[in-house]
Nucleic acid binder design. Structure first.
Lengths: 344, 344
DNA sequence: TTGTACGCGTTATCAC
DNA sequence: GTGATAACGCGTACAA
């Protein structure tokens, strides 16, 4: 590996000049710069990022710590963050915690050790410990879920979306919607549950506790939850699922029992994965502005990186959701279908 | 940020001793070690990874460069790689190239600058330039697609899988299967096309050129390809899609035209995304051992990292695929359905 | 067993 | 405008 010294010798200048040229310092003689660039090309010289970071006491990489790489929500957010980063000359490295607090802690550790320029993260829990990061002067932006510590955040009005979804279920004629949500430690899970409850409250009702299930946001857990719900003494007639992985689990259990959404049961899910329109029947969902979340988070991070202490007060951006009605939430009892078939 | 010197002063020893303790060098006095650890804890000391990397001339991070983070195939592979890395004390950072050669080049650059310990990548093209990596002594393992340069690889017998899929279509009674594959520069795309052709050859036939379409592996491109195929003079009666994103695009176009797979058209896709069993109707697929691919790649990388030059000959591991027949590939013309309904 | 001293490759400060 | 030099924080050969 060619080092800066090698380039300097070949160009007949000092290492300092090489450094200046490569960092586009304007006060260098044009001819010299030319010679230096030629030499660098000839040797295939690339600056050693590690040495540079040590010297500069900063890095050009962002860490994006997310809780589930398999969730389309996060992959879309990632694209948003990455686009902003690229635009500003940063690289982003993605760290997947798989909803595991231990993994999250490890990655926070890595981010600190490697002195990343900033962190965008979807905290595993409200109490996730990011003190090491802030202590190290590394700016953090929370997405998807809030953090106890005061940091910039990009959130979504989850409760509103969940209320919309549940109200829609009622409007369709379903009377006992269940709610399968995430782990209690995840704020999104609690917000979506709250919104679900709000829809009941608007009708001066209260959902029975037996209609609510917490899970770990995994499909298999949702499948089990739906199964137990269906087998309970007074089963629900419809379901609100707090994210798309859960929806997949529910779909699985419905199929197993020969239940068709939009006919035998109602179904609305949070998030609009690419496949939502193609399952049987097309799934009604609450969409979040995923890419936009990433973009906003990137912009927020950028401002903090520029002026670490400027505007000490943390800013929170809250984006809103939208209900997309497809067929899984419709209320068309079997006999209606049969009639339709006869007349057809 | 506490530095090693601070710990040394607090513990009343030299920085060298602190370093030794923290790196578990066995020849340190137990009492001293104790004191050092206490001091380190008290100060919340964390070794500066950048300085450490510069000194050691190596890092504890792997770069995983993949071509599409939205593709479940890669997220599953990523989990495999990560599990091996974690086991051995490495962190893996994920770089998404989005099938963009320029992005790939940038990430290769980053990997070199940041001196990662190793790289696992799904090359954008057979000719992707990784010379900088090998020149820098950074081991590379190719996955999914081979590379012109001789490196360890974990591949899948794509052609076999594609042939299986196409033969299955023929066996079901479809007679004019089309093939929608990826970009010509991607080996997987070519292999899958080759397997498709093999199935024709076994029947002493040859697919018309008009039955084949290349795309960029994106859903929207597949939708267009399928549309143009369907609108052609002699349209196909069934489809083999080279990956799950393409399948989504095909599904979209089918729905638009009111065509039901397994009845009006035949459909088999490569890859088994989580939603494959839940679309309408459940999709027949060729599965790859995704997680295993990641694991094998991780193991291969590990061996190279241990002994950079040992076994100069590159090793290639080829895993096999499996056909899962669900309903989208079945051949049940409309009238058959109608009859079944009558007798029911 | 422990401490001293140097170097990893780069950039920033200071003279010239 | 350019060059010598110090320093970033750590690990390790060498000396003690």
């Amino acid at each position: 590996m060619a080092k800066i010294k090698d380039v300097a010798e070949l160009a007949g200048v000092s290492a300092a000049t090489v450094s200046r040229v490569l960092n586009n310092v304007p006060t260098v003689d044009a001819d010299l710069a030319e010679r230096v660039r030629d030499a660098a090309n000839e040797l295939g010289y690339r600056a050693n990022g590690v040495a540079r970071s040590l010297r500069r006491q900063r890095t050009d990489v962002w860490a994006l710590i997310i809780s589930d790489i398999g969730n389309p929500f996060f992959t879309s957010v990632a694209r948003g963050v990455e686009d902003i980063a690229q635009r500003e000359g940063f690289s982003v490295v993605l760290c997947n915690t798989d909803e595991d607090p231990a993994k999250e802690a490890r990655y926070i550790d890595v981010a600190e050790r490697e002195q990343v320029a900033g962190v965008v993260m979807s905290p595993n829990a409200f109490g996730s410990d990011i003190s090491r990061l802030t202590a190290a002067g590394i700016p953090v932006v929370a997405i998807d879920r809030p953090l106890r510590e005061p940091v910039d955040s990009v959130l979504v009005s989850s409760a509103d979306g969940a209320r919309l979804a549940t109200e829609h279920l009622f409007e369709q004629g379903w009377t006992r919607p269940a709610c399968v949500t995430g782990p209690a430690r995840a704020d999104t899970a609690e917000q979506r549950l709250a919104g679900y409850r709000d829809a009941f409250a608007a009708l001066r009702r209260r959902p029975a506790k037996s209609l609510v299930r917490h899970t770990d946001y995994r499909a298999e857990s949702a499948r089990e939850a739906v199964a137990s719900l269906l087998d309970s003494a007074s089963p629900p007639d419809s379901f609100f699922l707090a994210n798309s992985s859960l929806a997949l689990g529910a779909l699985q259990e419905f199929r197993r029992r020969g239940l068709l959404p939009g006919r035998d049961v109602g179904l609305v899910s949070f998030d609009d994965p690419p496949w939502a329109g193609f399952v049987n029947p097309p799934m009604s969902v609450v969409v979040q502005p995923t890419y936009e979340i990433g973009v906003q988070a990137g912009e927020l991070l950028l401002k903090r990186i520029g002026h670490p202490l400027a505007g000490k007060d943390a800013r929170t951006i809250t984006l809103s959701t939208e209900l997309i009605v497809r067929d899984s939430s419709l209320h068309k009892p079997r006999r209606t279908r049969a009639k339709a078939a006869q007349t057809a």
